[in-house]
């Protein structure tokens, strides 16, 4: 706990004003128990939610980042599930915590937060063919599932995270089986996975049958989905994304994409606004 209170007084003096000491612990000691439990709980939560970011930064640097982040953005939600909600914003505001991997760390933080959303964010009723039959493409607007995130990233964080998770699973399995291994466990734990190279990727992070998935997309379908998500009509979204595409090939591919997205349940009907009562 910090030795000084916000107003500059000694924390021990402030604590003794409102907390009773007992025969074993001072007021400060008793407050310190709560302080320790608090930090343990919130740091542990970020530790679990951001294994990829942890692997990029290393444990110590991650700990410093998490502490600074929580000091600036303490929890404002009844559930710890939302604890990382402002991490992307924080990394944009204070990138020095993750130097020299600013962009990579930001990509990973966005990717890992998208997984939190994909896990238990709301699902809207998916679009049915009947919903759109009577609406021309110029007027048709769709929305995307709330649990779906579309990420344009500068690093292949998807592959990197898979490697991190595989390493953690290997360590757990070794610990469980207790088998002889040529590489000592501590060394294996520290084995760093090579950081990904710069590479532009387009990711959709979503769930299907309540399982979490991430799927790489090509630039054109990614752009269409982003436009739909921003409320553009289907015609507008497709036109701008496919400018320069040869007519015949285009329509076939469009059909394939929309077919895939419907099968995955990503497309939903726009909410009806101001439906008349009675």
């Amino acid at each position: 706990m910090q030795p000084r209170w916000l107003d500059g007084r000694l924390t021990s003096a402030v604590a003794s004003e409102f907390i009773k000491p007992n025969d074993r612990l001072s007021s400060f000691d008793r407050l310190e128990i709560y302080n320790r439990v608090y930090w343990f709980r919130v740091l542990d939560c970020l530790y679990d939610d951001y294994p990829g970011l942890r692997a990029i930064l290393g444990e110590r640097k991650f700990g410093r980042l998490a502490t600074a982040y929580l000091a600036k953005y303490p929890s404002t939600s009844f559930t710890l599930r939302n604890l990382g909600r402002h991490l992307e914003k924080f990394l944009r505001e204070e990138p020095h915590w993750v130097t020299p991997n600013e962009e990579l760390a930001l990509d990973m933080a966005r990717f890992e937060w998208a997984q939190v959303l994909a896990f238990d964010e709301a699902a809207a009723p998916p679009l049915r063919p009947d919903d759109v039959l009577d609406t021309p493409a110029a007027k048709l607007r769709l929305r995307l599932q709330p649990y779906l995130s579309l990420l344009e990233l500068n690093y292949a964080v998807d592959k990197f995270l898979l490697a991190v998770k595989k390493r953690e699973a290997d360590i757990l399995r070794d610990e469980a089986s207790n088998t002889f291994d040529s590489m000592p466990r501590a060394k294996k734990r520290k084995r760093r996975i090579r950081l990904p190279k710069r590479e532009r990727i387009y990711l959709a992070v979503h769930r299907h049958q309540n399982m979490l998935y991430y799927k790489r997309l090509e630039p054109a379908p990614f752009a269409i989905l982003c436009s739909l998500g921003k409320g553009r009509s289907v015609e507008q979204a497709c036109e701008s994304a496919l400018r320069g595409c040869k007519e015949k090939d285009c329509s076939r591919r469009l059909q394939e994409w929309f077919h895939d997205w419907s099968a995955l349940g990503w497309l939903c009907r726009m909410r009806q606004r101001g439906r008349a009562a009675g």
Binding site: F78, T79, R81, D120, E121, A122, A123, P146, N210, M211
Partner: peptide, 13 residues
């Protein structure tokens, strides 16, 4: 309760 005060996904299933 708080573990299931979510809007969708596996917990509610």
């Amino acid at each position: 309760s708080e573990n299931f005060m979510v809007d969708g996904g596996r917990p509610l299933e």
